[in-house]
Nucleic acid binder design. Structure first.
Lengths: 220, 220
DNA sequence: GTCTATACAGGGATAGAC
DNA sequence: GTCTATCCCTGTATAGAC
């Protein structure tokens, strides 16, 4: 689901990432990684709202203001957490899929994974709202890119698969619909208390996938 | 879409709403209404993030702390704004629908209305995230009730309409799916800059409705 | 480059005036 | 019942030490 495979997603950081030399950003990079690790720990323990800059700073052992040398804002830091998680999810799901994977199958697998990580689903929902309120902010820019890339990839796959021969606008709409339903169902699922609640995330999403995979008769 | 038709949605307030007598809550009620009116003005001018308690307080002419006598929190106040808007939307859409309205048609009409009010769509998305992060908070409680009611009503309508004869779980899943797709598409739509962007909210949602209305072959 | 100190605005909570 | 004053905690911003 990520728009790229990088873990850091930071242009400057990428320049030196993984190399042993002591370049201008070498230390920054490892420090960034450490801060992210701590942030994820705090996040796992206290949730999104509990992950304050001061709490992360405490976990790292520095003042909250020091974090701004590595992340311009709390929003940017949380986006980075999200980015990491997305990259990990893509890896895991594509690995599991083996040879015969389609976007539809990938999406279904990702949903199963999501159902096992309610904390990250909540983070995604929160960042989506943040991005919507400010599309030019860190969350917004990341999500715009991520959704564009995902819609494009899904649409391509659909166009050469189950929707071969359909008009492009319809294919594009279905791609948007697939991502939208995932986000919306996740929200209702969390609202109902997750897996124990009345909303069955995996089953409902599976229904949409079936609907698209087996549909007939739409005039086009 | 609201779980009820009330504008205030407050049990105590409802007791005296609309009556002329000077009961214990009469003054509170008109003051609440005034605050909400001002809040909506501030909200329209400065957006969700700009609608601080202090800003509303200024518009009303009191300190931000005074607002707490009418609304326990900013979250509660914004939920009330949302509630009002939902009630208005239901009125307008049902009025327009005339005799032959189904949930499917109503949902499509509501989407057209939503596309004309991006500010409120953003508010809804923001409150949804707030509710997800804390389902027991004001936003969470309202949304849980609202979605349950909406899912139930849509499911009933589907069961006696286009989905007659289908298994109940499938009908319930489609109901959740219809609300989910609406929320998710709205988010992508706002992310892409609204009506001028690459995501066509009304068209994409219409496609889902067509998909459900004309579907065949799903094994039941 | 890394970090502390500090100041400011926001939401929330409480005490107490009237 | 209505409201101000005030305090706490948060994210953010800046100055400046090293």
């Amino acid at each position: 689901m990520s728009s790229d495979g990088s873990v850091t997603g930071d242009d400057e950081a990428v320049r030196t990432a993984g190399r042993g030399r002591r370049g201008p950003y070498a230390k920054s990079e490892s420090r960034r990684e450490e801060i992210l690790d701590r942030a994820i720990e705090v996040f796992a323990e206290r949730g999104v709202d509990g992950t304050s800059m001061r709490a992360i700073g405490e976990a790292v052992g520095v003042s909250h203001a020091a974090l701004k040398h590595y992340f311009p804002s709390r929003e940017a830091l949380l986006v980075e957490v999200l980015r990491r998680r997305e990259a990990r999810l893509v890896e895991d799901v594509t690995a599991r899929a083996g040879d015969d994977f389609t976007s539809l199958r990938l999406l279904a697998d990702a949903t199963v994974r999501n159902a096992a990580e309610p904390g990250f689903v909540a983070l995604h929902t929160a960042m989506l709202a943040t991005g919507v309120l400010d599309p030019d902010g860190e969350a917004g820019e990341h999500l715009v890119a991520r959704y564009r890339e995902a819609r494009g990839r899904i649409a391509d796959d659909l166009a050469t698969g189950v929707m071969a021969g359909r008009p492009i606008t319809e294919v594009a709409d279905v791609a948007a619909l697939l991502l939208a339903a995932s986000d919306g169902l996740q929200a209702q699922w969390l609202l109902e208390g997750g897996t124990n609640g009345d909303v069955d995330l995996v089953r409902s999403y599976g229904l949409l996938i079936d609907l698209i995979g087996t549909r007939r008769g739409a005039q086009g």
